Computed example of a mutant assay.
Amino acid sequence: MARQVYFHIGAPKTGTTYLQNALWGNRAVLRTQGVLIPGRKHFDTFDATVVVREKPRRGRRADEIGNAWDRIVEEVHNWSGTAVISHEFFAEATAEQAKKAIAALAPAEVHIVFTARDYVRQVPAVWQEALKMHSKLTLSEFVEDALADRLTGPWSWRTFDIRAVLERWAAELPPGQVHVVTVPRPGTDPAVLWDRFARLCGIDPSSCDPSTDMANESLGLVEARLLQEVHPRLTVLSGLPERHRWTRGFFAHQVLVPREGERFGLRRSEAEALRARALDAVEQIRLRGYDVVGDLDELVAPDPLPELPHPDDVSDAELLDAAEDVIADLIMHVRKHIMQSEHRERRLRKVQRQLKELRERQSRTRRLLSRIRRMAAQVRRRIKQRRS
């Protein structure tokens, strides 16, 4: 059984994808250091969150998903060093679900790791993810519902409320086994976050290359508003896989994000309310005596708060201008794929012609061989007749 398990449970939009890519990208190196990243593939850990959170499992992968957590636990049980489990959706688990997950890892010493970020930056980032998955809420509505705890699912206050998440997950653990890793201020080298996380988990940061996929996934001001306007027209994308592939994966990440639009923010009253929540969270972390890796001041937005435009203030003229550019981009996307498709079709037709010619040559060769065999048989008969 693993001696220690560092169980990284969230929160969403706190550099979790960056850290997970660094872990999986350096998996072989980490094994030589006695550190296990359990799972056959990266997505296995997401599947494990589905089991731990007791979410419905449907479709052709239902059985595979159903065994995901058990497979990870088995790997941990068969390992003798340190194990690191990481996915931000674990943060949604109830206290009872968290208790069962930790108990499944016994007798290993379980450490809960929570990466935390300034709420004033985090909440707009979380709203963007919800928006990409067809949330109908404006940014202000999202903040209002988040503060009132009316949101559900992984993109809700439930998953990034530092105080509540740690109360659920750390209820039966000593404070020294609960770690809050703070996300550095904007402009800081991302490797600082990796260095903090790695050292906590007993990993030599310099032995790994954390520069995996660092692509920016943030929507700009006008782009976010444009996506809001487009949503009602995407009724054909009814299922989660469809929305993930086409709205999030294609339209948001391939068309809108590369435009590198203007950064946006919250209304002052919203930012101040979140700043107050952050101050309360920091006080609770201190009172509970949790281990802090980084600086708790990084969890509190600077005062005065920065003035940033709000998506609701985007004008019709700005929307129209962006829509025209996006339509041109979409035409270029379609043109590229049509040309690639036509190129593949031409190659396919060429291969088909070559196959046809090859078959015709084979047919002629078979006929020639058959004729030669008949002639050879005639020669053998004549020779036999002459000898007789």
Score class of each variant (00 low, 15 high):
30 L>E: 10
80 S>F: 03
287 L>D: 12
348 L>E: 13
340 Q>V: 04
381 R>T: 10
87 H>Q: 10
212 T>Q: 14
192 V>H: 03
186 P>M: 11
52 V>G: 00
335 R>I: 00
213 D>N: 11
80 S>A: 12
41 K>W: 07
9 I>C: 02
76 V>P: 01
138 T>K: 05
255 V>G: 10
188 T>Q: 13
177 Q>K: 12
93 A>E: 01
232 P>R: 09
319 L>M: 06
43 F>P: 00
261 G>E: 01
209 D>H: 08
161 D>Y: 04
110 V>Y: 09
26 N>P: 04
281 A>S: 13
43 F>D: 01
168 R>W: 03
201 C>P: 02
203 I>S: 06
363 S>I: 00
369 L>V: 07
228 Q>M: 12
321 D>M: 02
62 A>C: 03
252 A>M: 05
328 A>E: 15
176 G>T: 07
246 W>D: 05
288 R>E: 05
346 R>C: 06
239 G>M: 03
255 V>H: 11
46 F>L: 14
279 L>M: 15
332 M>C: 01
190 P>T: 04
108 A>L: 05
349 R>N: 14
172 E>G: 05
386 R>F: 11
31 R>V: 14
202 G>S: 11
85 I>V: 15
50 V>I: 15
283 E>V: 01
364 R>D: 14
133 M>K: 15
57 R>M: 12
250 F>D: 01
44 D>A: 14
56 P>E: 06
238 S>M: 12
326 V>M: 04
68 A>W: 01
224 A>N: 10
25 G>A: 14
320 L>T: 13
314 V>T: 11
51 V>T: 13
366 R>G: 02
175 P>M: 14
152 T>M: 08
272 E>C: 01
270 E>Y: 06
111 H>M: 00
251 F>K: 07
87 H>E: 11
356 K>A: 15
191 A>L: 10
303 D>Q: 15
159 T>V: 14
73 V>M: 00
276 A>R: 08
